[in-house]
């Protein structure tokens, strides 16, 4: 296995074509999922005629604002953890200095990059948050009842790129290049998985909120938050 991962051709494959593949699958898959959902929604006559832009925005705003909904106020710890987690998981890979170098190297583009110390901290935060989420799933009775194996697999899938990224950066556990290969592979796997697993909630959130927000605001004249 070590020899396999150490193979220069594997490294080239993982940092070249597979990155392309992952990004294409991610973006095309996401657009495809959104498109098919929007098309399917036409079959249900109660969705489009009642969509309201104003209440969609109200709903999304309330639920993207920390403690914007009664639900979040009733679950303060979980809210804090999930907000920190979601911010870190999105910001870290996009503004990481190491990733920026790669963008710069291939396409000569770059944008704001965060100091290494900060992204290191954010990476650890993601891992710690995931651990809390995992514990919650394991310990809290009502959530354990809902959980199936796939939920744990998803947690691992999301944790892996961050764990391996941290380890490779600090050259821990395995040889730098091997760890880097695993890191890239797991990152690509996660990107590919997003459109086709529950991770698709990252964009489905906006669609479900549009419907429910409009139903509550425009039809039911009450709050969905």
């Amino acid at each position: 296995m070590e020899q396999f991962l150490n193979d220069p051709s594997i490294y080239t494959l993982v940092r070249g074509p597979l990155v392309w593949l992952a990004f294409i699958v991610f973006f095309v898959g996401m657009l495809y999922r959104i498109f098919t959902t929007l098309k399917m929604a036409k079959k249900e006559k109660v969705i489009y005629p009642y969509l309201s832009f104003k209440y969609t925005l109200r709903s999304i705003f309330r639920w993207l604002m920390p403690f914007g909904s009664i639900s979040m106020r009733k679950h303060p710890w979980f809210t804090i953890i999930t907000f920190i987690f979601h911010i870190c998981i999105i910001v870290t890979p996009i503004f990481l200095t190491g990733h920026m170098e790669l963008w710069n190297e291939s396409w000569e583009i770059s944008w704001l990059s965060l100091p290494v110390g900060l992204t290191d901290l954010m990476t650890i935060t993601v891992i710690v948050c995931l651990f809390f989420i995992f514990l919650r799933r394991l310990i809290q009775k009502d959530i354990r009842f809902l959980t199936s194996t796939s939920d744990y697999i998803l947690l691992v899938l999301v944790a892996l790129p961050f764990i391996t990224g941290f380890l490779s950066h600090h050259e821990l556990l395995l040889q730098y290049k091997i760890m880097l290969t695993i890191h890239m592979l797991s990152g690509e796997l996660m990107l590919i998985a997003i459109p086709f697993t529950k991770l698709s909630h990252m964009f489905m959130f906006f669609l479900t909120r549009a419907h429910t927000g409009s139903e509550f605001g425009a039809v039911r004249h009450s709050r969905d938050y």
């Binding site: 959902t37 399917m40 929604a41 079959k43 249900e44 969705i47 639900s71 009733k74 679950h75 979980f78 919650r136 799933r137 809290q140 009775k141 009502d142 959530i143 809902l146 959980t147 939920d151 529950k198 698709s200 909630h201 489905m204 959130f205 669609l207 479900t208 419907h211």
Partner: peptide, 30 residues
């Protein structure tokens, strides 16, 4: 049923935020 069923089933993250909102759950706590 179509879009709503599909999207609702696929998007539920099983986070348990709804648990305590239900009076039936509160009536049978635990």
């Amino acid at each position: 049923a179509s879009a709503r069923l599909k999207i609702f089933v696929e998007t539920c993250m099983r986070c348990g935020m709804c648990t305590n909102s239900c009076h039936h759950y509160l009536g049978h706590e635990g």
